[in-house]
Each structure stands twice: as C-alpha cells, then as structure tokens.
C-alpha cells in the first residue's frame, strides 16, 4: 500500500511541478474548445446544442496528449525497473499512475470545463453537471488510455500511434458522456446516460490497469 501511495504522490508532484504541469493540457483543452465558436459562429442556439459535445472531444484530445509520455519517460530512465522490483503488484502501480494523472490533469480539465460550458452557451445551472460528467469521463479516458500508453511505451515519438491505439477505447465514454452533457443542458443531468457513463468508467478502471501491466512486463525484456 505504501508503494502505491509513494508512486501516486511522486507522479502527482511531477504533474504539478514546473515544466510538465497541468497548464499545457488544460490550455490545450480550452484552446481547442475555443476554436468551435470561431468556426461555426456565435449563434447562441447552435452553440448551446453542440457546445457540450465539443468539450468532450477537446477533453479526449487533451487526455491523449498526456498519455504519450506516461510510461515512456519511466521506461527510458530506468524507473520502470524500480516499479517491477516493488512488492506492490504492477497492476496497482499502473492504476496509481493513472489516478495521479486524473487528479493532476483530469480534474483540472473538468474544472475548466464549467466556465467553458457557460461560454459555449450551456445553461449556467448545467455547468456543474457537465463538469462532473467530464471528471468521471476523464477517469475512463486515462485508465483506458493506459493500455495504449503501455503498449507503445518503447516507441519513439509515439503520439500518433497512441492516438490510433486508444481512440477505439474512447468511443463508449464519449458516447455516454456527450449524451449526459446534452441531458444536463436540458435540465435532467443524472439520467440513464450519466449512469451508463459511470458504467463504462468502471469497466476502464477494472480492465485498463490489468492490460497495461501485462504490456509493461513485456517492455522490461
């Protein structure tokens, strides 16, 4: 347990330290979301309909960005060897890394989504529900994304490859997440779409670390 906490604490400190902080992915998220009104025009009803789904797309792309270096840096620097020598199971350590990324990057993105949703003409009352949905969805993105990040960890400049590997796993959460956001905009935030989003997130939480650990063990050889 202390091993899992130690890794969580270290990765969280790294996520918040200068240089590799949450500022870049959050800024990317806001910038990508900002391109929408610039491209479709500031017509209020149109923005209200597609604003929340666009936030989900921007969040998925921002998650891809942070996944690229997640295991790659550890593999290059020999840090993965130390994880393999830990008494804690590698599955739990992979989950700790994803959890640190969720707290360090996923939650800031979800928090930034609330003002962004209002700027995109979502009803202010729904902004909280949209941010909550994104907070849950970010967990699905990052835990499911572990698989691709671990499989491509030894590949140089793996950004495009990881995107290709991971996007099929993003389909279920983005489906229900955007549907839940649309429901929130209509004033019914916690309907079936929200519950199905939680369901797909639980799937990712359970299976992502197992598959990632299997891939990481192969990277050590």
């Amino acid at each position: 347990m202390s091993a899992i906490l130690a890794l969580f604490r270290r990765d969280l400190a790294l996520a918040w330290s200068a240089g590799s902080g949450a500022a870049a992915p959050v800024g990317f998220f806001l910038g990508a979301a900002m391109l929408l009104p610039l491209s479709v025009g500031a017509e209020r009803t149109l923005l209200g309909a597609i604003g929340a789904p666009i936030l989900w797309i921007a969040a998925a792309l921002a998650s891809l960005m942070v996944l690229e270096r997640l295991f790659q840096a550890d593999l290059e620097e020999g840090g993965l060897d130390q994880m393999l020598l830990s008494p804690a199971p590698l599955e739990a350590l992979a989950a700790a890394k994803a959890a640190a990324l969720w707290v360090g990057v996923g939650l800031p993105i979800a928090a930034a989504a609330a003002p962004a949703a209002i700027a995109l003409q979502a009803p202010p009352a729904a902004a909280g529900a949209i941010a909550l949905g994104l907070a849950i969805g970010e967990a699905a993105f990052l835990f499911a994304g572990l698989v691709g990040a671990a499989a491509a960890a030894s590949v140089k400049r793996a950004g495009v490859l990881i995107a290709l590997l991971v996007l099929p796993f993003f389909a279920p959460p983005i489906l229900f997440g955007a549907a839940a956001a649309a429901a929130a905009a209509e004033g019914a935030p916690f309907g079936p779409a929200f519950l199905l989003l939680c369901g797909t997130t639980l799937f990712a939480l359970a299976l992502g670390p197992i598959a990632a650990a299997a891939a990481l063990r192969l990277q050590a050889t």
């Binding site: 698989v147 796993f169 389909a171 489906l175 199905l196 797909t200 299976l207 598959a211 891939a215």
Partner: peptide
Amino acid sequence: VLCLAGLINLPIVHYS
C-alpha cells in the same frame, strides 16, 4: 495484449 483488450472493447462499443 492490445488485440485481447480490443476483443473486450468491441462488444462494449457495440452495445454502447
């Protein structure tokens, strides 16, 4: 490993 993860993902996508 990726192939097996995809094998689990496909029915989830389908029913989703």
